[in-house]
């Protein structure tokens, strides 16, 4: 899988590149609009991570060029701008997703997976991992053919987050933000993350699924499938 990362901050770019490389992606880096325009005309990418504020112009130019060229590359905007207008503008010009800085790498990875799944597999709605079979459209989870008890929407999202970042430590903070967004701070601690993880684990276990979700002391959780 090829990813083009258009980001002018080298520290941020290298951090993202390292994480994504570990996930098995091939990352290419552009730091300016000019470089990026050259690359998108020459190559095809499965996903383009696009920063909007670049030293030589706005990332929107690249989005427009992609549209003009009739390219089908998926685009996720990563921007420091929180403004709703920017988000709507980006999505209307053809971006697939919008992530505001600072984001968790696990969140980014999950969004990339979801994007590629939608684009590459023509909206294939099935995710499989370690015997777990998830039908995204029907919201049905099975383990080795056995249907898991109906998950709540939050538990369902949690499971997808875990499966999207196997063998990665997911901090309670990143899970909380993923589940509750801006309202993650309604609780002073992450008890609700704990509650959701506990329920999810229980439901999976009842369907005979082994304990894939591990607690990492002081940090959070890790989804680990043997032999992967």
């Amino acid at each position: 899988m090829k990813i083009l990362l258009i980001e002018d901050n080298t520290d941020l770019a290298s951090g993202i590149e390292k994480y994504l490389s570990d996930e098995g992606y091939h990352c290419e880096l552009s730091q300016t609009v000019e470089q990026a325009l050259e690359k998108i005309q020459l190559y095809e990418y499965d996903c383009i991570l696009l920063d909007i504020s670049l030293p030589d112009g706005s990332g929107f130019v690249i989005l427009e060029k992609l549209k003009q060229l009739g390219k089908q590359d998926g685009v996720i905007i990563i921007s420091a701008k929180i403004s709703l207008d920017d988000k709507l503008k980006g999505l209307s010009i053809g971006a697939d997703d919008y992530l505001t800085k600072p984001f968790h790498l696990a969140e980014l990875s999950m969004r990339i997976r979801a994007l590629i799944r939608r684009r590459k597999f023509n909206g294939n709605n099935i995710i499989q991992q370690g015997g777990i079979h998830i039908d995204l459209a029907e919201k049905i989870v099975q383990y080795n053919g056995k249907t898991v008890e109906q998950l709540s929407p939050k538990e369902f999202e949690l499971l997808i987050l875990f499966i999207s970042s196997p063998h990665r430590v997911l901090s309670k903070g990143s899970i909380a933000e993923h589940l509750a967004g801006d309202n993650a701070d309604t609780f002073d601690n992450f008890d609700f993350v704990y509650a959701h993880v506990k329920n999810l684990k229980k439901k999976l276990k009842n369907a005979g699924c082994p304990g894939y979700i591990h607690t990492i002391y002081g940090m959070g959780y890790k989804f680990k499938v043997e032999g992967l």
Binding site: G15, Y19, A80, P102, V169, S174, G218, M219
Partner: peptide, 23 residues
Amino acid sequence: QTPLAVIRTQTDLFAQDKNLTKE
């Protein structure tokens, strides 16, 4: 926001280190 994003990315990477102690 950008330096924050850098710190967050680095922290995330750091958290993946298998040899991290509890402390």
